[in-house]
Amino acid sequence: MSYAVPSHRDTPRGLAKLFALNWALILLLCAVAGAGFLMLYSNAGGSFSPWAGPQMIRFGVGLVAMVVIAMVPLRFWRWVAPFAYLGAFALLVLVEIMGSIGMGAQRWIDLGPIQLQPSELMKVTLVMALAAYYSWLDPKKVSHIFWVILPLVLILAPTALVLKQPDLGTALLLVMGGGAVMFLAGVSLWYFGAAVLTVAGMVYAVLKSKGTSWQLLEDYQYRRIFTFLDPAADPLGAGYHITQAKIAMGSGGLAGRGFMQGTQSRLNFLPEKHTDFIFTTLAEEFGFMGSATLLGLYTLVIVFCIASAISNRDRFGALMTGGLTVTFFLFFAVNMGMVMGLMPVVGVPLPLVSYGGSAMLVLLAAFGLVQSAHVHRPRSQQD
């Protein structure tokens, strides 16, 4: 595939940019968010307060922000990418100094009306920075060890800070999202093989370190791992969350118990039912059909984004779109796998469905970048 840098002569101008937006993608995002509003309304017992109402306002603000970001030329985002990364990294450092503590973790910066979670920003700015780096770098050099060092530093430095918060789920997403950009840029598969072996060694070290003076994870993180392996060992303790989640999803059957008729959520058996475990509410109330419908919407979002990335002849736009698409996929794949007991519980929200301010706004901003790459992609004379 050949790449080109878009110029002002081959991209839409003014109001034409609005018509050039991927409106099918916007409608899909609205449909996913709508499912989230319904679940938050149901979890609150048929009330827009305290979750559905604020979530709808945030989505409206984020949707406007997405369109505004999409109108900005792609060359600006290429230029601003390293500065955005440095800003997000500085905020992560600031979290260590003066961050707010919630549920045993120090992840937020208190800005008064909102709680900013810099790690959410880092998921996007990391992809932007790596895409900008590889769009600058000669494709023939991407696998040279010298040119691989900087991307690894860009990925591992924020990952270390996020692990310290501690936030294992976000740390994993940073590593996998950054690795996806490196893979799409054409980095040799030998590096990924070495990474797999390194991860296997780290997992072994993590398990062996439990109970020693050099223990690598917090006690609660070890409980999550062992609960994943055998949730029935402590059904009223560490295994309570996943046990109740499985009961809720199983009771939904094919078509579900009906809207606002889920006993597990209505009787407050479900933990974190408005955030990380909101998918279980949907599965209980709308059953397999509702769950498959949501998964289908997510799949269509991925398909539209992949199609946009493949058709984009600008290297930065293609890599950024591909990296953000993989990050979005990891969001819902990890969350769904987590609540179904296929993965350890790592605290990853369901994108556009779980309640949350930072995650919602940052994700819509990321889709604004995807739209900017789509709107400002180079066009041939035949297009």
Rank of each mutant, 00 (worst) to 15 (best):
R257W: 11
G258M: 08
M260W: 01
Q261A: 13
Q261S: 11
Q261L: 12
Q264M: 12
Q264R: 10
S265E: 08
S265V: 13
S265D: 03
R266Y: 08
L267E: 02
L267I: 00
N268G: 00
F269P: 00
F269Y: 14
E272D: 13
K273W: 05
K273Q: 14
T275E: 01
T275Q: 07
F277E: 01
F277D: 02
I278Q: 07
I278A: 06
F279N: 04
A283T: 12
A283P: 04
E284M: 07
E284Y: 09
E284Q: 11
E285A: 11
G287P: 04
G287E: 07
M289Y: 12
G290I: 03
G290P: 07
S291M: 02
L295P: 00
G296F: 11
L297T: 04
Y298Q: 07
T299I: 08
L300N: 05
V301F: 11
I302D: 09
I302H: 10
F304Q: 14
C305R: 06
I306T: 11
A307H: 06
A307I: 01
S308Q: 13
I310F: 08
N312P: 01
N312S: 02
R313Y: 01
D314S: 10
R315S: 03
F316L: 01
F316I: 02
G317C: 03
G317P: 00
A318Q: 07
A318N: 09
L319F: 06
L319E: 02
M320Q: 03
T321Q: 13
G322K: 10
G322F: 02
G322N: 10
G323N: 11
G323W: 10
L324A: 09
T325W: 06
V326H: 04
T327A: 13
F328I: 06
F328T: 10
L330H: 12
F331R: 03
F331N: 15
A333Q: 11
A333T: 15
V334T: 13
N335G: 08
N335R: 13
N335F: 11
G337Q: 11
V339Y: 12
V339R: 13
M340A: 15
M340I: 06
